[in-house]
Design a protein around this nucleic acid. Sequence first.
DNA 1: GGAAATCTTGCCTGATCGGCAATATTTGCC
DNA 2: GGCAAATATTGCCGATCAGGCAAGATTTCC
Lengths: 209, 209
Amino acid sequence: MTQEDEAGLGLRERKKRETRVALSRATIALCVRRGWDDVTVEDIAAAANVSVRTFRNYFSGKAEAIADGHLERMTRIADSLRAREADEPLWDSIVHAVLARFVPRDESGAEAPPDQRWADGLRLMLAEPALQGEVAKANAAAQEALTLAIAERTGTDPARDVYPRLVAAVVGAGSAVAVEYCLRADPPASLEPVLREVFDRLAAGLPTP
Amino acid sequence: MTQEDEAGLGLRERKKRETRVALSRATIALCVRRGWDDVTVEDIAAAANVSVRTFRNYFSGKAEAIADGHLERMTRIADSLRAREADEPLWDSIVHAVLARFVPRDESGAEAPPDQRWADGLRLMLAEPALQGEVAKANAAAQEALTLAIAERTGTDPARDVYPRLVAAVVGAGSAVAVEYCLRADPPASLEPVLREVFDRLAAGLPTP
DNA sequence: GGAAATCTTGCCTGATCGGCAATATTTGCC
DNA sequence: GGCAAATATTGCCGATCAGGCAAGATTTCC
């Protein structure tokens, strides 16, 4: 297991996290209902019972609030990677780590309920051009954490070697392609096989099919 | 050769391109000199001899103006790829296409003068967090064009196959890693060997070193 | 229990954003 | 050359965003 969402954190941290998620949720919900440009920060703050000023203490704008869930998910791939056995082949670990975050399972078997905030947020971000930069930004930010985890795992130096950065970037790019592909597919495709195909191709050096 | 920057375009198109580049240049120059948040759109417009409103007809904000050079360079990789012989192995074509854009050479041999706007702009974007999203956005946008070129080349379908999107994303990610690595390196490293290393590793399936 | 740290909030000023209509420039056709 | 259509530039304006500052409320730590 990785860690409960709210473990032994102080009251303060818990409340902060609560309002953060509430704001993100409210932003997504309002934008889904009324469309991107018909939602003001004021509406969002009202829906989450905080002041406008507080919203802006958490997020720099609507876009960041929407991308927050995605950012967190991407960032935690690094945690999942660290949790794998160190002697497992690197790419096996990576596939498991990514799947653990994107298709989470409880101990029994089938996957946990899909995260509505994440899916709605992503759909918004893919549809609205003003938001596409924000997905990319979240991916880039998460890459940093992943780079460190990979460097640690492979005994490379994130400051001097290209390898860990390259792998992190490729994993991020591959995951993004898989997720977007499934989200855009007309009969929504399931994520796991697509992710596996992507990583198989990557490990094979992307030969022309 | 690929194409002159200003070929048989009408006067109108040439002027538009001129002001566009002038605005981008002015933005970068001012931001290098005075720092990101001490530059207003008004300053930029004044420096380029246009009205503020005109600036905003070209770019949605300072960030986009700075990223413009990078976006164009990335987008044209697709053009370079189309210009290669169709029977060359795909990855050879890709390496050549990327190098053609990043380390351009005239017919004689050694490379053309480095593009100052591009380098300065990238340095700004890597330094300023508010701009990192913009690089990522430009990369993502260029990816679309590259996807089409790769699909065409490999006879795959960009709408149904994951392959062309995946290759485009990986090429973009790899190039970004190489460029950032060289730009951050303390004694500035030269781009070509790093790019070759990156693509060698990619074609080999990124084995742990 | 009380001091220190920090989160929330309102207020305020300057900058950004984008629609609209008037004006100026280019283009294409005669 | 001249005219009409298409398109670019510009100023104006209201709405929104952006972020510094200080007062008040809440949590933490001793």
